[in-house]
Design a binder for these strands. Structure first.
Length: 443
RNA sequence: GCCGCUGUGGUGUAACGGUAGCAUACAGGCCUGUGGAGCCUUCGGCCCGGGUUCGACUCCCGGCAGCGGCCCCA
């Protein structure tokens, strides 16, 4: 018997329905904010995927040669593909706001929280260098999460240019910023001592390390930290640029209505090498230990690295599996209610042609409709409809049909009544809609 | 990548160096025009490869997969 390959999994209908529900809502929010869909291949050239990914990620790229010895890889995130498109389509009007939702692949140790094939929902703004873009990208992410029923958030933000300044203040070795960033970023996972070890390995002195660890402890609500921080990086032009940018983001976040979630965290750096300024991660409020459910940052140099003009860009990525797992844990997926579906049951095989007619009529009206394909007895059909969770069964019987009527049965209550065929859609409508409902959703 | 535990019908489990049993699900029947209960019937399995043995699902080795931990990392 074949199983899904390591780190991948199947999604049976019940689960897939929930997944789709979440994906649909996020897509709708993306489009609501004016992001446009962009399709790019799962397969990209290895050469391209490697650019500015960072050592650790490169090891995780699915790599292979095709039959013509081309070196290829599977996308491990969406940003590179976006940059490739932007670099090679100079005609795109700016700003270019695009979203992409789909699977990405990383060769790493699978666990419940980490598969080798997983979905990311990305929203990026290309062509805007100002903080309004970063704030909007955060807003769309928060709104997407709200629309699937999450309520409270913590957005950790930082700017790598501030970190850069702190590195200088702490007298850390020059030219190893990226490695140091990666080490510092792990503080949540490996703890202060772990980071200390890492930094030692990178050739920093004990004193520098202590100083840096002390510096990055600062964090919290922007209103409280920003002033303090201003004094700290006063002597560093780069640091000031970063700081001012964060201020701008914070300013705009108020206008977008997400400022209450924002927290400065000077230890945040993120693992990818291409970030040039602000970086951010979103956590579900009260579930910070669970890990981030979205993350992103600004990558102003990446498009140029891909052969395009110097073009600023920023974006955010939602981790779909993480989000679903979290929702599962919070018990939110059980409350999902889907539009009611209709099952058409001929009372006997003889009525099959009439049943098809009824089913087609309902489908034309937009009802999710299924019918018996196996000449089952009415008993079996009801059993089946019950198990599959249909809300309505339309019984197409000889006796009623002779008068142009059918019987509708509500599967939840067991009530049923006879209705005219021409009025059938009206009788099913109150309980059926193409839109989805969510009991505890804010919306 | 490393260490540990695990691998029996679709799912969950039992036993055993000598013909693999149960539950549940699926399909059908009791029920020839009415679901959720009950009873009955059918279908269906030892992860893969090698070794030890008269004989391996069982013991040994390797692989693969899952789970947990470490490492690594969104």
């Amino acid at each position: 018997m074949f199983q899904p390959v390591k780190g991948t999994r199947d999604y049976l209908p019940d689960e897939m329905r929930r997944r789709n529900w979440v994906l649909d809502r996020i897509r709708r929010v993306f489009e609501c904010y004016g992001f446009e869909p962009l399709g790019t291949p799962a397969l990209e050239s290895w050469e391209m995927l490697k650019i500015k990914s960072g050592e650790d990620i490169i090891d995780q790229i699915y790599y292979f040669k095709d039959k013509s010895e081309r070196e290829l890889g599977l996308r491990f995130e969406w940003t590179a593909s976006l940059c490739r498109v932007v670099a090679s389509h100079r005609e795109l009007p700016m700003p270019f706001k695009r979203y992409a939702i789909g699977p990405v692949w990383r060769y790493e140790h699978p666990s419940e929280k980490r598969l080798r094939e997983f979905w990311q929902a990305d929203a990026d703004i290309v062509g805007v260098g100002e903080a309004i873009a970063d704030a909007e990208v955060l807003a769309v992410a928060v709104d997407g999460l709200k629309q699937i029923g999450l309520k409270d958030f913590k957005i950790r933000v930082n700017d790598r240019r501030i970190l850069e300044a702190l590195l200088n203040i702490a007298d850390m070795p020059l030219g190893r910023s990226l490695e140091i960033f990666r080490a510092v970023d792990k503080i949540q996972k490996i703890g202060v001592e772990g980071v200390r070890e890492e930094l030692k390995r990178l050739g920093s002195s004990e004193a520098s390390i202590n100083r840096l660890l002390e510096l990055i402890k600062r964090g919290g609500r922007p209103d409280e930290v920003l002033v303090d921080l201003e004094r700290l990086v006063a002597g560093s032009p780069v640091g000031l640029i970063g700081l001012n940018f964060l201020k701008e983001i914070y300013k705009y976040s108020k206008l977008f209505g997400i400022d209450e979630y924002i927290q400065l965290d000077l230890s945040l750096a993120r693992g990818l090498d291409y970030y040039t300024g602000p970086v951010f991660e979103i956590y579900a409020g009260g579930f910070e230990d669970y890990g981030s459910i979205a993350g992103g940052g600004r990558y102003d140099d990446l498009i140029k690295l891909f052969g395009g003009d110097q073009t600023p860009a920023t974006g955010v990525s939602l981790g779909i599996e993480r989000i679903l797992l979290l929702m599962e844990e919070m018990g939110m997926l059980r409350n999902l209610e889907f539009g009611s579906r209709v099952y058409v049951a001929p009372s006997s095989p003889k009525m099959k042609p009439k049943a098809i007619e009824v089913a087609q009529l309902l489908r034309k009206e937009g009802f999710e409709t299924d019918m018996d394909l196996m000449n089952r007895s009415l008993t079996k059909q009801l059993e089946h409809a019950d198990r599959k969770g249909f809300s309505w069964v339309v019984i197409v019987g000889e006796r009623e049909m002779a008068e142009g009527r059918v019987t509708i049965r509500c599967m939840r209550t067991g009530e049923q009544r006879s209705v005219k065929l021409v009025e059938l859609p009206d009788h099913l409508k109150p309980h059926s809609s193409s839109s989805l409902n969510f009991n505890s959703a804010i919306v």
